[in-house]
């Protein structure tokens, strides 16, 4: 019973973080600032969701697979994000800053 409650709480927190990440991807002004909320999905969102599922699994093989999914995400997501940011910077994309917003110059591909 306590396990159930704990897992519900964990899943709820995970769902909240996933939602926040989604909103952030839509709301932030440029690529670089979008990466930060997007990262929440991969770490806190996925972590709490999978933890909640883990508490519900009851089978060690299932638990191992859930942990493996999380470990894969933890290893791949920062590499992908880093590669993305690096590639975008090399391509000449300039990060959005407060000053540039006032200057109103736009960048990115037409």
């Amino acid at each position: 019973m306590i396990l159930d409650i704990l897992s519900w709480i964990s899943i709820a927190i995970g769902a909240f973080f996933v939602l926040v990440g989604g909103i952030g991807i839509w709301r932030m002004p440029d690529l670089f600032s979008r990466m930060h909320p997007a990262g929440i999905i991969d770490t806190a969102g996925a972590g709490f969701l999978l933890l909640g599922l883990l508490l519900q699994s009851g089978d060690w093989l299932v638990s191992v697979k859930l942990v493996l999914i999380f470990v894969f995400l933890l290893f791949t997501s920062p590499v992908a994000t880093h590669a993305l940011a690096h590639a975008a910077l090399l391509d000449g994309l300039k990060p959005w800053t407060r000053r540039r917003d006032k200057a109103r110059d736009k960048d990115g591909e037409p």
């Binding site: 670089f32 990466m35 930060h36 909320p37 990262g39 929440i40 991969d42 770490t43 806190a44 933890l74 997501s77 920062p78 994000t81 880093h82 940011a85 690096h86 910077l89």
Partner: peptide, 10 residues
């Protein structure tokens, strides 16, 4: 990169 709020770029 894993810590939200900061991303390593190079």
């Amino acid at each position: 990169t894993l810590t939200p709020g900061t991303v390593s770029t190079d």
